[in-house]
Amino acid sequence: MSDRFRRGAYYTLLWSVSLLFFTPVAWIIMSSFKTREEILATPPTLIFTPTLDNYIELFTQNQNFLQQLGNSVVMSLSAVVIAVLVSFLAAFCFSRFKPKGTNFLMFILLSIRMLPGPAVILPVFLMFANFGWKDQHIPLVLFYAMFSIPFSVWILKGFLDGVSVRFDETGLANGGSWFHVIFKVVLPQVKPGLIAAFIFNLIFVWNEFLFNFVIGGVQTQNIPYALAVGTYSDGGLNWTFIAALTSIYILPPVAFIYLFQKYLLAGMTFGTVRGEV
């Protein structure tokens, strides 16, 4: 009996910690169901009649919003699909053939992700401005793909190193081409790595602001861009808009970490640590 009680107390404690970390997010989600007066009330109101007006207004009154949301979805998906595919080939090459300079290339790849954002984007900005690529979807998507490659290569190489070379040899000995070996034999075995790379980079591009701001523009703007430049402020910040917007925008990443919790660790450490929590 006392053991059961202790267990109950322990679980309650864990749940409280989790809820404590979630409180600020819960607060913003709660605020999105308030009217403007309730949001700006002092002291803040805890009891109120929830209203969906903010969401209705967001979808109907604001043309930009749908465009920005569409940009976010299309750009992050296409960039990450390209990046993961290309990275898989390179990671396979690094893992199996270890060409000269593999370590150096892996190092260079990683160091790009270690550099503060403005330092990465500064020369790219000059290049984009000179070539007239600014504010266009395809160059921006390709840049995002480039930026998603390093971690994808690292994650996938980690997983590919775990697949025995025997599989390749068997496939080749049985008359399969390299194409067959790579896509039919090896690819299915690193599915967890592909998912980890995909999810991790998807969350990254989804959340990315600076690059979109600097080398994108009005046509390509996503939601973080809109938030940062204060698109939704007309004399002071429009908190009802922001609360509703944020609540919608953070849903996909949160859903991803619920659905793909198994892959979270591999993604967050780009494959240097594998396993589940």
Binding site: F21, L245, F256
Partner: peptide
């Protein structure tokens, strides 16, 4: 799984959105 999702939520949020809504929480008047 739900508890861990709630716990891990802060690190996958859009940093710009996080910054914006913390400004809301830190606000001196409301």
């Amino acid at each position: 799984r739900i508890a861990l999702t709630l716990l891990f939520t802060p690190m996958v949020l859009t940093p710009v959105a996080t910054g914006t809504f913390w400004r809301f929480i830190y606000d001196p008047t409301f």
